[in-house]
Design a protein around this nucleic acid. Structure first.
Lengths: 135, 135, 135, 135
DNA sequence: GTGGTCTAGACCACG
DNA sequence: GTGGTCTAGACCACT
């Protein structure tokens, strides 16, 4: 499988660490089925050059995603999307549904004068409660 | 007005800065009307001791909330909820509505195998889009 | 909890990456109950100086162990053994038992002319079979 | 002697170098008496194609095993198992004994929550100690 | 002073 | 040429 263009964008002024931005964008592409199992990713160095960041930063991202089981790093060969990643894929319809729910939440929050960070925190709190409730 | 108990909880292993956790919890209590204008907050030192955190951190929180207009620091006297804070209060009904929307989003996200951080990021992204759309 | 001496040893000529050596030694100490929950570890920089290695390498080790749930990194404060690490502790008796079984295997392997790497590989193969058999 | 099928399996996601995997599997087959002296091995190219790996890698493996005295490379003819390899053969009974000891160790390790890499490392450590004790 | 991120660059192992 | 490790050093966020 060839290495397709990887239309990743880094916002250096967002305050969000570069490696987090990269990880999430690649993870999301795999989840959406835009990066199928077996697909080769750009080499560490080439992606670093393309994004204007350091190769170590890219390597860190690939390594993190390897631990999550999404990527397979082959020394001397390259980096590939794992077969197992398909299990973590999400149907596009579901993602739309999620996006809609998120949009609704954002509108409600804004009209109530909340801040984005407050909503994000609310989500994390509810998430933990849900997890605990399962136990 | 007396200083009520301030049932704040700090999670040291969450990775979220302590001052952020504190700020949001106090802000939310004011928004909910659980901390009314004129109410005195615990002293910097007592709250620091109670939570087992650094006094500088508490001082920073009070200072930040003062800048937002929610608190009033009276040197040598204490810290109080401002009258103006009432303007930022949100009706309980609205908060319930928001909480419900958030709960739904959390459930959708969980069933799709997403992580809380991904949802939080989604929210922030949508937020910015909404802001830009307004311009 | 104070930071006790951490008698770690690095063998730079072993060919085994420094961060792997460090990780395993700290992990083993926690497993053995020699590093109890709440205990503070040396700071990233001090351990780096003590071992004569780079601070980034120590930071990587701490970060990896944090992901495993063994350590808790508190920015601005320090690094601590988590409460949850106790769940991964192993009784000393069991470790002795394991060491004996390993010693026996080593003797058998040596007398049959095998190499250590072959034994190690045999272990990993059997391990995977056991895992698959469980499914 | 004809070239038998060589049922080798390569795990590209194991992190273990391909040449190590290949070497050990061939070595083990010779030790077990499954590859007898005089037997021809597949050509470098055919084995490389069959396994989907680089021909250089296969060549390296054959060369390494030649240095160990297990294989004989005859230029323009092919690669063969040496007569001397018989001396390194191990009786099946012994291999069973070793496999049993290894299985026991794996079970103990798993029930104690260790990782395969930790067991492998333990073995290598004990091996070195045994060697030193002999001196 | 703590940990976290990022850079630049060197050297190594693998294919 | 691929990824992996390590160093040295800068700057930042947090307590």
């Amino acid at each position: 499988m060839p290495s397709p263009d990887l239309p990743v964008e880094i916002d250096r002024s967002s305050g969000i660490p570069i490696y987090i931005q990269l990880e999430e964008q690649i993870r999301l592409r795999i989840r959406r089925g835009q990066l199928l199992p077996g697909t080769a990713l750009p080499t560490v160095r080439s992606l670093a050059v393309e994004l204007g960041i350091n190769a170590n930063t890219v390597a860190r991202v690939y390594r993190d995603l390897q631990r999550e089981g999404l990527l397979r790093l082959e020394r001397g060969v390259g980096t590939f999307v794992t077969e197992a990643s398909a299990e973590q894929a999400v149907e596009p319809g579901r993602l739309d549904e999620i996006a809609n729910a998120a949009r609704r939440l954002v509108e409600l929050g804004r009209s109530a004068g909340l801040r984005p960070a407050e909503l994000a925190r609310l989500i994390e709190t509810l998430w933990k409660e849900t997890v605990n409730a399962e136990r």
